[in-house]
Amino acid sequence: MAPKMKKFKKSSKNPIYDTNWCDMPPEIKVKCIGKMEFKERLLLRCTAKAERSLVDSQKIEFQNGEFWADDEDIVFKLNRGKNSNFLKSPKNINVAVGFLKYIKKVGVFENLKLCFGDLFTDNEQFNTDDGLFAAKKVEIEQCEMDNVVPSILWEIEDGVESIKINVDRKVFRQFDELLEISNMWIETNAKVGFTFQASIYKEGSFAAFLEHFTDSIVSKDERRVRIRTKNPDIHILLERGLDEIVETDDIPQFSRLRVIPAEMKKSEYDNNCKEWISIMDPDVYESESESEEEWPEYFGISFDEDEDGDDFDPVDYYTL
């Protein structure tokens, strides 16, 4: 004999149907919630405490999430694919922080773009929130550098594939980025494939790198320096983007740092710097070819072009 299916308590009102939502076991409710769009989930969680806790226990996947704010407006856009968009303009900063907190709890993003300006610079609630953004690719743009960007970086869950930060060169020049990143990779035992690219507007970075890692150098020439790390299985390779177009005296200079396997041979080096320089600054090779090339995807990194389209816009791409 088959066991009886469990019937759950009924509402006090006259039932429309013999069996209804409240008769469903939680595992079925959760399955149904999983089929709902974000808006319906938010509405359902407003009906009762029990439904709220069920809705909040479920993650929801988004293709794209964009959180954008300036002095006047705050706009949050979420997208789960075709015909599934959610737009929210929080009335004030507290509502915005509350919504972001909720999004960190339930949202799982393929692409997440955060452009907060200086909205959250002094917002303690935002800067101390211990919730984490779950996303594969994160892009941080026009965010205040001292508090907001570090807060966001701390609030990104493990498993992120790429983080792109677009920062003003004036700010970026304060960092000795090649040394900082290399040291960080050595300390954190970074994985093979991690890549950092930068266009550098000051002279002497390559020399400073050589000097700093003098005791760790495995090999060096005009275009490359390879250093060992604490992990005998991995090396760090610094490459200068030099070819018939980009020369040693040009400003900016283009550099690429990569974590490589220690057994990688010199013959396996990638000699085509055009590909990765074009990602940072498409204008460099523009005169050579007017055709638009597709930007390749790098393991651990992706880049976008400068959307302003200003030839002299001082934007660097700072990627971890």
């Binding site: 009924k10 509402s11 006090s12 009102k13 039932p15 429309i16 149907y17 209804n20 939502w21 409240c22 509405l43 359902l44 009906t47 009762a48 405490k49 439904e51």
Partner: peptide, 10 residues
Amino acid sequence: IREIWMIPTD
């Protein structure tokens, strides 16, 4: 939703 699904209020 509460009405259709007979969800009791808190």
